[in-house]
Design a protein around this nucleic acid. Structure first.
Lengths: 119, 119
DNA sequence: ATAATACTTCGACAATTAACGAAGTAACGA
DNA sequence: TCGTTACTTCGTTAATTGTCGAAGTATTAT
């Protein structure tokens, strides 16, 4: 039961499912995900660490920035996750996130990460 | 986000994932699932009602017995659930359940459903 | 050095969920 | 009709999970 359950549980949360889907085209910096998901840095960080524990995403540090991206999947996992991607393509929230992410990525680094200075 | 999340959440529990997998070959009576999953009737019934709300299983009544079986899936859902089935095939707990279920199904109706008389 | 930035981890609290006994319902049997 | 059986729903309790502020860490800037 271990691995499939672990994988499914990791995706069984709105924030984590949206984050995972947002990483389909490529890696993102945490600050972009914070802005996209509209949660505190601590919360987003914790969700991503959960996805990481499940082996669904990886991350690399580049100076101060932490980039998260999908892991490589194989076998039945890959097929399951691929099918889930297709299920999510039609979803309203996912499409809203896509638009939102486009706007976010047009911003500069200075405009982003405002979340740390906001108060 | 609605449907895919609903589906994934329904499966994000050990008992429900085992129940769902146990229904792959065909429908089962609740008392068989109670014996298999080793939980109280109330607990098993509630888990199955959750799977039903997610559209993953259906049930029909035949006299006093309630038979649960998988729903028909289509499109990306079908592919996702099919891949999940393959992921689960290798799992130890799933294989133990298969053996256990074989033994359970050799029992008569009178031997089964002892769970209601046990105390 | 010192200060700021971009995060993560910790600790606390609130909300959600799993579990089951007890009470309720529907079907069958005497 | 009255009891029994097979189950569901309800109500409570315990455990888990989501959330975020505060404190901690690593990296860059001055």
């Amino acid at each position: 039961m271990k691995q499939p359950l672990h994988t499914v549980r990791a995706l069984a949360d709105e924030i984590r499912m949206r984050a995972w889907k947002a990483l389909e085209p490529g890696e993102l910096c945490l600050c972009e995900l914070i802005e996209l998901l509209d949660r505190s840095p601590a919360t987003v960080s914790k969700h991503l660490s959960l996805l990481r524990q499940a082996g669904l995403i990886e991350y690399r540090k580049e100076g101060r920035w932490h980039y998260y991206g999908r892991a490589k999947y194989a076998g039945a996992s890959a097929r399951m996750l691929g099918a889930l991607d297709r299920m999510l393509d039609g979803d309203d929230a996912v499409r809203a996130d896509k638009k939102h992410l486009n706007r976010i990525q047009r911003k500069s680094r200075e405009e982003l990460c405002q979340c740390y200075r906001k108060k």
